[in-house]
Computed example of a mutant assay.
Amino acid sequence: MQPTAIIIAIISGLASALLFAGIVLQSSSAVSLALAAPIPIAIASLGWGSTAGFISAAVATAAIYAIAQSVPSALTLLASMALPTAVAGHLVGLARPLADDSPRPLGAANAAPPLDWYPLSRVLMAITLMAIGSCIFLGWYLGFDPEDFIPAVVDALRQSGGAMDTATDDERRAIAQLIIGLVPFVQPAVLAISLIVGLYLGAAIVRVSGRLPRPKDDIPTSAQLPQISLVIFAVAAGAAFAGGTIGLLGDVLLGGFAAAFTLVGLAALHRRTRGRQGRFLVLFSSYAALILLSFPIVLFLAMGIYETWRRPDDPAPTGRN
C-alpha cells in the first residue's frame, strides 16, 4: 500500500469523525453534517482501495473516541457508518475477469480482459442489511427500551408550547408513545438512505478525479433487490405486530427494507420516464411531493415492491472496462 493512500485514508477518517462529532457533542444543528460522515470514507475506499477504506473507518472511530472519551460514541460511528461504508466500498470495487471466448482484434491479445463487476443490486442489499444489523446491535448495546424514553419526550412536549400547552398529560404521553414507537422504523430507514447517498456522492467525486476504476452504472436499470427481500419484508411485517422484542426487530427490518424498496421505486420512475416529454416536470413533482408531503413514499414503496417481484435479481455482468 502506497504512503499516499495511507495519508488519504487518515485524512478521510479524520474528516468523517469531524462530521460526526456534532452528534457526539450534542449539537442539534450538526445532524445534517453527521449524515454526511460516510462520504469521506467512501472516497478513500473507492479511490484508493478497500484497505484505505478500512483504515479510514478505524481512524474515524479512534478520533471520535479521542474527542468524546466514550466507547459507546465510537462504537456508534463504527457500527452505523464507518464500517458499513468501508464494506460497501469494498463490494463496489470487486470485479473478476469476464469469460470472453470471442476472437480479439489483431494487436489486442495482450489487452486487459473485460471485467464483471459486483452487481449494484447486491450492493444495495448489503447496505440495507448492514443498516438493519447496526441498528439492532446498537439497540442491544445501548439498552434501548421505549418505556425509558417516554418521560423525557413528555417533558419535551410540555416545554414545547403551542398546542401542547392545552394538552393533558395523558395526551402528551400518547403522542410520546407514537414518536418513540416510530424510532425503530425510522432509524434504519434514515441510516440506509444516508449510507447509499454517501456511497453515491463518494463515487461521483472519485469519478471526477478519474480514480474510479468501475464503469458508471446505469442506476435506474441496476437499482433493484433480490426477490428474497420480499420474503424478509413479509416476515418482518408479521413480526411487527407481535410486540415486545420480536416486534421491535420486525420494525427495524421493515424500516430498512422500506427505504430500499422506495429507492428502487424511484429508480423505476427514472427508467420509465426516459425519453418522454415532461420528464423533468414528473421527476421534480415527485421529489417535491416526497419532501413536502411525505405520504407519496407509500406509492414509491409499492412501486419498488412490484419492481422487485416483476424483475428478478440478475447477477449478470454489470459493466465492462
Rank of each mutant, 00 (worst) to 15 (best):
L46E: 09
L254T: 15
G13N: 11
G53L: 09
W309Q: 04
L91Y: 09
L129E: 02
R122W: 07
T51R: 15
L248Q: 14
F284S: 15
A57D: 06
I23K: 11
P40W: 01
T318Y: 02
F54M: 06
P105M: 07
A88E: 12
Q26S: 14
E307T: 08
L75K: 11
S12P: 08
G107Q: 07
G139K: 00
V208D: 07
L46C: 13
G93P: 04
S209K: 12
F54D: 02
V24Q: 03
A44M: 07
A17V: 07
S294I: 13
V208E: 07
L98I: 01
A112E: 11
R96T: 14
A9M: 03
G47F: 04
S73V: 01
G275E: 11
R272Q: 11
R104Y: 03
L35P: 11
L290N: 13
I150R: 01
E171D: 01
L178G: 12
D218Q: 08
P40S: 07
T262Q: 11
I11S: 12
G49W: 00
D116N: 15
V87Y: 06
F261H: 13
I55E: 02
P226C: 10
I228F: 13
A99D: 11
M81Q: 14
Q227M: 08
L281F: 04
P315T: 03
M81E: 02
W117P: 00
Q69W: 10
A36D: 05
L248A: 15
V206F: 00
F54C: 02
T245M: 11
L263E: 07
M303I: 12
Y141K: 12
Y65G: 08
D145N: 14
S45L: 04
T273Q: 14
I39S: 05
Q177A: 13
A268E: 08
A21W: 05
V208M: 10
G93I: 08
S134I: 06
V183M: 14
A15F: 05
L249W: 15
M164G: 00
S45V: 02
L138S: 01
T85R: 13
A192G: 10
A268Y: 04
A68K: 00
S56D: 08
P38K: 01
I136D: 04
L78Q: 06
Q277A: 14
G139A: 05
R311M: 12
G210F: 03
L225P: 00
S45P: 03
S229H: 01
Q224Y: 04
L266C: 09
D313M: 01
A260Q: 08
T308M: 05
F295V: 15
L290T: 13
